[in-house]
Nucleic acid binder design. Structure first.
Lengths: 341, 341
DNA sequence: CATCGGCGGTGAAACGTTTCAGCAGATGCT
DNA sequence: AGCATCTGCTGAAACGTTTCACCGCCGATG
């Protein structure tokens, strides 16, 4: 059914080598021959067989991207950055979703391994999978995305999340908030732990201790998790209730916002919210969310560049690029409180 | 660097055929031999070469999914459904984003074609690409997603968008709205045109003509497009200004909501909004959005099932499954207006 | 006129699997 | 004992490319 290079050669009256040359090094072929081959290709509807190319070449024209949550716009934005750079190099991207489940992640990594991808970009689940080490051991470049590496022997792009947590907290402290909640506590993800750490440090610096920091740990880092946190917060007696919250990501911040509004807590008047990631929906929320911006797109682009550099070899040095977070202040935190310790 | 099946055979002291049997038909191999082979595989860190398998098999273990906008949660939800069914069959999904650009779409289709994917799921751009026909001509199953086919000779899953537009409009008409806006008009996408059609028909049925229907056509079907529409709506003199809007998707509805709130128009008290798709963010908006629900996940699942059925051949009949839309009423339209024609 | 270099092309090997006909030896049946 | 059957394994062909050594021809060169 599918014409092969041999069929084309036959029809054009040339050898297969020549057809291959027309495809890959057109300038080495005489014009008349080239035209004949091209029209044969056209007539037969010939399409290259990528598998055969790969088999011969030893590797594919593909890279893998494994994300924690395809439903989180943060990751689709990263994916856009990745695809941009990859496509510019003629590479395809296989986008895999792990849902933060080690098993799913492992299955995806195995599949990518079998496909002989040129490299893998991954935001790994809480623990670094042995499948990942296996991949690296086989010489497949791996770049960690939004996650610092354990050692210096691998590439990574990440954001300084301790600093991100700190500037979020300092913003709220400056505005007079004295009781603050951090939403997302129990997650095993280092990114989240670092954000927490930064928040706690800022609170300690300002108030002497972090007793005033309430840590909430919803089931999942999702909108539903944020709503869950809202219910918990309004359940706290007013005297001890936080007046502001920092969420470990914007999905939770949106859920929290929704939950507070539903409980007739006005945002930001009665309660301030700061999110994290600065996804587009943060600005589009009915009360636009203050958020800690990460260069999502750039994260994806840079990670892919590092991956490609490593894939090409040539004296590649592992590089860990840490981007600075940036606080984007919007309505959800735009009220100054009377400092009533 | 990468061990091949031959290395494994050598180390285990068997033939390559036997190794292949261990991998694919373990029960046909003696236990002792099998163990020897397995430990050789382990020792060498052998990983199957998928390219070689594909080359031999003539097709890959992969399907392609081409969506219009990876940033639209509607599509990531569809993608989840697709991945679920595909992974259950041991297939990988290559997710491609066309951004509604025919060129990008064509490039992706070509790449998928070269990869000899088992089939392609696609929400095509406005016009059906010749690349798509080429694909089908080569015998690659194609299933249209969220788009009705032009003829009966192909599979599709879609939603009755005329009906969807109608129920959205009827809902607003019932609530006493007499001047309604439809946001998304100029898009060439048939889905959007059908929604428009349904809205217009309902308005005509209720009011005798669709003069009272204002059609707005933002640049893009995005949050920014919705904000743009809001600016336009508040610019209309109060006497002629619509009291409600139906948006062609939820992204625009969210943008519209945000824009209206920013212009101090209260939703739903002063202005009602109905979205389309019912993405999760619709319910999570600070004013939860009334929306026309499409079975996003099911759409993806069903499309994949149809694709697989077609890929397996065996008397496959092309099937066009149209799902019913369902109005989900939330706060953004929850006010009854005095009927003041 | 012999030689050389370049151009345009050929043909076969190699990539790593899967598949299949075939074979040796063990087992069961008459 | 003779024959059929089954079990477990072998070896080679085939999939469609790319690559590379090689070859014939032609015009230019000394």
């Amino acid at each position: 059914m599918n014409a092969s290079i041999r069929d084309v050669a036959l029809r054009a009256g040339v050898s297969v080598g020549t057809v291959s040359n027309v495809l890959n090094r057109p300038d080495t072929v005489g014009e008349a021959t080239r035209d004949r081959v091209l029209s044969a290709i056209d007539a037969l509807g010939f399409v290259r067989n990528e598998s055969a190319r790969q088999l011969r070449a030893g590797r594919s024209r593909t890279i893998g991207l494994v994300v924690l949550d395809i439903s989180n716009p943060f990751f689709t934005d990263v994916a856009r950055g990745v695809e941009e750079v990859a496509n510019a190099q003629g590479l395809s991207v296989i986008l895999c979703n792990s849902d933060d489940l080690p098993d799913k992640e492992a299955a995806h990594l195995d599949a990518l391994s079998e496909q002989r991808v040129q490299g893998v970009l991954i935001t790994p689940t809480a623990e670094l999978s042995p499948h990942l080490d296996a991949l690296r051991a086989r010489g497949v470049p791996v770049v960690l995305v939004d996650r610092r590496p354990s050692g210096p022997d691998q590439c990574a792009v990440a954001v300084d999340d301790v600093l991100g947590g700190r500037i979020a907290a300092e913003h709220l402290l400056e505005r007079g908030h004295r009781r603050i909640a951090f939403v997302g506590g129990a997650s095993g993800l280092p990114q989240v732990q670092e954000r927490h750490e930064g928040v706690a440090a800022a609170v300690r610096d300002a108030l002497g201790s972090d007793d005033a920091l309430t840590v909430l740990s919803p089931e999942a880092l999702t909108v539903a998790g944020g709503r869950e946190a809202a219910a918990r917060i309004v359940g706290i007696p007013a005297a001890r209730r936080p007046t502001a919250a920092i969420c470990a990501n914007d999905l939770m911040a949106l859920g929290l916002l929704q939950g507070m509004v539903r409980h007739d807590v006005r945002v930001p008047d009665d309660f301030a919210i700061v999110g994290y990631d600065d996804i587009d929906f943060a600005a589009a929320a009915a009360v636009p969310l203050t958020s800690v911006r990460k260069p999502r797109h750039e994260l994806g682009r840079r990670a892919t560049e590092l991956l490609l550099s490593e894939a090409l070899g040539e004296g590649h040095r592992h590089e860990q690029q840490i981007f600075g977070p940036q606080l984007v202040v919007r309505e959800s935190s735009m009220v100054r409180r009377e400092t009533a310790s």
